[in-house]
């Protein structure tokens, strides 16, 4: 592509929208990526089929949509100790709007440590790892190379995205989703096979395991989804658990969820001091 120093791309789009996604033609139809919503989707396709269609432009199979739905359930924990859920609960106890509470929870999970914020890193790693594997690197080579790379902090503790988890080691959701994948008839492919080899090696050498993001991203890359598509589909991943925590705190007496007395905060700052006379 040649250098484009003109303003034409902005001029062309002033006051106009040109879309592949669809839209509303009043009195005619609502279109989703070529489908008529009322004729082709409502009552005929599932919500998750429609979600993936809207994100990717491709209507997934029913079984793929079932798989996505199951994978969303795996992040629907009603445990208000978890950071995103607690933010939903705090909005609930302060009598905030459920939309604000759930939105705050969803945004909280845009995190490097958990939730959809870690998706891109997980998907990019397994894509990189398979390329290295095809160059002849063993799973241990891949782990060591990754740990030494610019993508993670070098050190003894593994910080490969998708292969560590806060609070606990191991991840029960991997086994659950393996069952779902098998029951739906999915065949394991190269990214996921490598992911399990890395998982096994990591457990032997570093006492860490593949986590749910590692599993989901390897599976979906194998199924042809791009890093961006996976990240976008999962952007609201945690919302069901946040809903639960918001609802309970909101139903209870206002302000009674995890109240803090003054002494519940440990002050570690400067001792009380006089305002300087020479200030201003």
């Amino acid at each position: 592509m040649k250098s484009n120093q003109s303003k034409s791309i902005w001029q062309k789009n002033r006051g106009k929208i040109s879309t592949n996604k669809g839209g509303w033609r009043i009195g005619e139809a609502i279109y989703n990526c070529g489908f008529s919503m009322m004729d082709d989707l409502v009552g005929k396709k599932s919500f998750f089929q429609t979600l993936v269609l809207n994100v990717t432009g491709k209507l997934p199979s029913e079984k793929m949509a079932h798989w996505f739905e199951a994978s969303f359930i795996c992040l629907s924990w009603p445990d208000s100790r978890i950071w995103c859920n607690q933010n939903g609960a705090l909005l609930g106890t302060s009598q905030g709007s459920p939309v604000a509470g759930v939105a705050a929870g969803i945004l909280s999970a845009d995190s490097r440590m958990y939730g959809p914020g870690s998706i891109s890193g997980g998907a990019e790693f397994i894509i990189r790892a398979l390329a290295w594997s095809k160059q002849g690197l063993t799973p241990l080579d891949i782990i060591q190379k990754e740990l030494a790379s610019k993508y993670t902090k070098p050190g003894n503790k593994p910080v490969i995205v998708g292969y560590a988890r806060p609070i606990a080691t191991g991840d029960e959701r991997v086994e659950a989703m393996e069952k779902v994948s098998k029951s739906l008839g999915f065949i394991e492919k190269e990214h996921l096979t490598l992911a399990f080899e890395i998982h096994k090696t990591l457990a032997e050498h570093y006492q860490e395991n593949m986590n749910y993001v590692g599993y989901v991203t390897a599976f979906l890359v194998d199924e042809g989804f791009s890093v961006n598509e996976i990240h976008r589909i999962y952007s609201t991943w945690v919302h069901s658990g946040v809903h639960a925590c918001f609802a309970e705190a909101n139903d209870n007496i206002a302000g009674t969820f995890l109240p803090l007395a003054c002494d519940d905060i440990e002050y570690v700052g400067k001792a009380p001091r006089k305002f300087p006379k020479n200030a201003q």
């Binding site: 806060p166 609070i167 606990a168 080691t169 191991g170 991840d171 029960e172 991997v174 086994e175 393996e178 399990f196 998982h199 096994k200 457990a203 395991n209 803090l260 007395a261 003054c262 002494d263 519940d264 905060i265 440990e266 002050y267 570690v268 700052g269 400067k270 009380p272």
Partner: peptide
């Protein structure tokens, strides 16, 4: 061979929120 045990890391979490910004005397 893929089955793993789920175990707590038993990390030592702070028992109080810390602040170096604000002191509130009750």
């Amino acid at each position: 061979s893929r089955k793993v045990n789920i175990e707590s890391r038993n990390e030592q979490f702070s028992t109080k929120i810390k602040s170096r910004i604000t002191l509130e005397i009750p």
